[in-house]
Design a protein around this nucleic acid. Structure first.
Length: 719
DNA sequence: GTGTGCTCAACAAT
DNA sequence: CATTGTTGAGCACA
């Protein structure tokens, strides 16, 4: 398994031809950061909506930092997160970039935040922007930054939750020809982020990207096109200052955790992990010394060059330039400049470099996943002759020990799938006995329990024959695949004219109801409007948690908006359930659509970021047309194992489709955000009317059992 | 400040 | 499905 290093052809003389440095001490750009997941009071260690990420271990283990170290789980060692002590006292480096005004196509200019704020009339406060609430510290920092932005008296009366909201500002241009909504975040938040800010930026980016894709898909002819919705969405957010960690830095980026995944280069730009939209090497100028020199901050290795990325902890990275990937230019020797020079200087200084590994997405082979794999040190560099015969720089990067595993876990999972390595604690390779298209593993690497109580696996929802929940309805008349923008398709019309999904079967936004084509629609079975009916797309495993019974997680990465599974089981008559309601703990596996989220989840694009005006109804109240209660106690599927969290990464969405002239309601689960492999899947179990009443009358939070989100607001359900 | 060139994208077409 | 062509974004640097 050992790689062959060093290479045969080594010409270090050329690389070493640099001016002597006065100091080879590593340079850190900013004071040692507290671990990004520690938030200041009063929000507790983990703010609502943002739990720490540690694949392969449960959060409660991680909170016990005394137990940090290595655990051996069935012959497979996973390192617990440990933080290496900060290095030498850093010499501050400042590398600020100021947002530039961006010219809009119509000639108007989008003002940068700092200048525009003075002129912006306060228009509106929103309690919920993009489904995420901002904490009080966030708001306070805004008030400090813009003290003239005072709340109106009426808005002061609003609830505490509204105080937690971010400001939504709107300005009119000179001629009122455009509206520019800006999330008021202080320059501090833009320079140095935190977990909340990172999540907020990423959620906003993807929601906007999905909407732009949806609009683009609906166009008949590709004119005036928004190809590359990722670039467009990123550009909009950049120009509005909706980004974070803008100040470049060496080492840890606040709010970004090892193992975090991304699906677009733009995402990494927006959160300050890697600020080059294409280039593989990101660097900054160190001005702390009399002599300015470039230092590398991060690299992306994703197959564009001939890297050696087979090893888990070692990466042989190729330098940039030499026209390797350009058809319009002659190949040439790479030069010791730009990123190559920066890497060389970082080697001499022994500075850490962030490494992002780009991997082909097994679920959607056309796209790539970027995994943040933590900090590496450049151990050596040399020049090699490339395939074209020209010189190519090579850098050997070695992963700093003691960091939680990220890329290494991907390699393990790959081996499980290929059968070269068996999953430790595997009890049954497929607990569905083949009734799903992809096997679902049953795993216990915690204790001796051999599995959950017996139930019958049924992959979807079973309606009793007499149970017709909807009036008769009919499917569409399309004869191939239903196409976005085709308003002749009745299924699309039911969705308000918008095709609910975009490329890679990704849901665009949360709605009261999504109408899919059903079994009797004449369109082809591969019609893209049948996402929730196509079955599992990722390899799931039911696993034993440390203290919440069995849980559900995925071997594969899951993109935000991806369909995960539906809630399988038996549809119950609502009246009957109430009569049988006193059956002890019989509600443990009951899904009830009348339970609502206490913390509202909009999971929607922010209309103010587009010039859509009021054509988009952003204030949908998500009412279910007809209550549906599902029991998965005796008959069910993987969804019955999903635990509760009030900082969930999954939400449920009612989906309706037609069968034999009757419409049937289903409950489909979609990813709220990108979910790295092996992170537990959870959704908000919500709250029933009676529980809501009880909580209000007792003026105390309901606590059945502890939820691990750490929020003081949490009611702590799990099933 | 402003313009130009560089770059381990992302898609669609083939 | 591997390859090819097309259009790009932020950023560094002149």
């Amino acid at each position: 398994m050992e790689r062959a290093v060093p290479p045969t052809f080594v010409d270090k003389s050329r690389v070493l031809d640099v001016k002597p440095l006065r100091s080879l001490v590593p340079v850190f750009p900013s004071p040692p950061q507290a671990p990004p997941f520690i938030c200041s009071p009063p929000f507790g260690p983990f703010p609502p909506g943002f739990s720490p990420f540690y694949p392969f271990s449960s959060p409660d283990q991680n909170q016990q930092s005394a137990r940090a170290g290595s655990t051996n789980q069935g012959g497979f060692t996973f390192s617990q997160p440990t933080r290496t002590p900060p290095g030498p006292i850093p010499a501050p480096i400042r590398s600020y970039r100021t947002p530039k005004p961006v010219a809009k196509p119509n000639g108007d200019t989008v003002l940068s935040m700092e200048t525009s704020r003075e002129d912006m009339p306060f228009v509106k406060q929103s309690a919920d922007i993009g489904g995420l609430e901002m904490n009080e510290g966030f708001i306070d920092s805004q008030r400090r930054a813009a003290p003239h932005l005072r709340r109106s008296k009426s808005s002061q009366k609003k609830s505490k939750r509204n105080q937690d909201a971010a400001f939504l500002l709107s300005i009119d241009g000179d001629k009122g020809s455009f509206k520019n909504f800006i999330i008021g975040c202080s320059s501090f938040q833009q320079d140095d982020g935190n977990r909340e800010m990172v999540n907020y930026v990423l959620m906003t980016f993807d929601a906007l990207r999905r909407r732009l894709s949806q609009v683009e898909d609906a166009k008949e002819a590709p004119t005036g096109v928004i190809k590359r919705a990722d670039l467009k969405s990123g550009n909009i957010l950049m120009s509005k200052g909706l980004r974070t960690n803008m100040r470049k830095r060496i080492g840890v980026v606040p709010g970004i955790e090892i193992g975090d995944i991304f699906f677009f280069r733009m995402e990494m730009c927006l959160v300050g992990l890697h600020s080059q939209s294409m280039a593989g090497i990101d660097y900054m100028i160190d001005k702390s010394d009399l002599e300015e020199e470039p230092l590398a901050v991060s690299i992306v290795s994703s197959g564009g060059y001939d890297d050696d990325a087979e090893d888990r902890d070692v990466l042989i990275y190729s330098g940039q330039g030499g026209n390797i990937n350009r058809k319009d230019k002659q190949v040439a020797d790479q030069k010791l400049e730009r990123g190559n020079l920066a890497l060389e200087r970082s080697l001499r200084r022994a500075n850490e470099v962030r490494v992002v590994r780009g991997i082909k997405d097994v679920v959607n082979p056309s796209s790539k996943v970027y995994v943040y794999d933590g900090l590496y040190i450049i151990q050596e560099s040399w020049i090699e002759k490339g395939k074209s015969g020209c010189n190519i720089f090579k850098y050997k990067l070695v992963r700093t020990p003691g960091q939680p595993g990220a890329f290494a876990h991907w390699k393990s999972i790959q081996k499980w799938k290929e059968g070269f390595l068996s999953r430790a604690g595997l009890i049954i390779p497929d607990l569905t006995s083949g009734s799903e298209s992809i096997p679902v593993s049953l795993v216990n690497d915690i204790d001796d329990e051999k599995g959950p109580a017996h139930f019958t696996y049924f992959p979807t929802l079973r309606y009793s024959k007499s149970f017709n929940i909807m009036q008769p309805s009919y499917g569409c008349n399309c004869h191939k695949a239903c196409l976005p923008g085709d308003l002749n398709c009745s299924c699309i019309r039911k969705n308000g004219g918008d095709f609910p999904y975009v490329a890679n079967n990704i849901l665009v936004s949360r709605k009261s109801l999504v109408y899919e084509c059903g079994p009797t629609c004449p369109c082809f079975p591969d019609c893209k409007n049948r996402v929730s009916q196509i079955g599992l797309k990722v390899h799931l495993e039911v696993f034993k948690t440390a203290d919440r019974g069995w849980g559900l997680r995925s071997w594969d990465p899951i993109r935000a908006g991806s369909f995960i599974c539906e809630y399988g089981g038996e549809a119950l008559d609502g009246v009957k359930v109430k009569q049988d309601g006193d059956e002890g703990d019989s509600d443990e596996y009951v899904f009830d659509t009348t339970r609502i989220y206490e913390n509202s989840l909009k999971w929607n694009y922010e209309p103010g970021l587009l010039d859509e005006g009021s054509s988009v109804d952003a204030n949908e109240d998500y009412k279910i047309p007809s209550p549906l209660i599902i029991s998965a106690k005796n008959v069910g599927n993987v969804a019955r194992f999903m635990n509760h969290s009030c900082s969930p990464n999954v939400f449920w969405q009612p989906v309706l489709y037609e069968h034999n002239s009757e419409s049937f309601l289903h409950v489909a689960f979609f990813a709220i955000k990108h979910i790295p492999p092996m992170m537990e899947l959870t959704y908000d179990y919500g709250i029933s009317q009676s529980e809501k009443y009880e909580a209000q009358s007792n003026n105390a939070p309901l606590k059945k059992k502890e939820c691990l989100c750490g929020s003081s607001k949490c009611r702590g359900y799990f099933g």
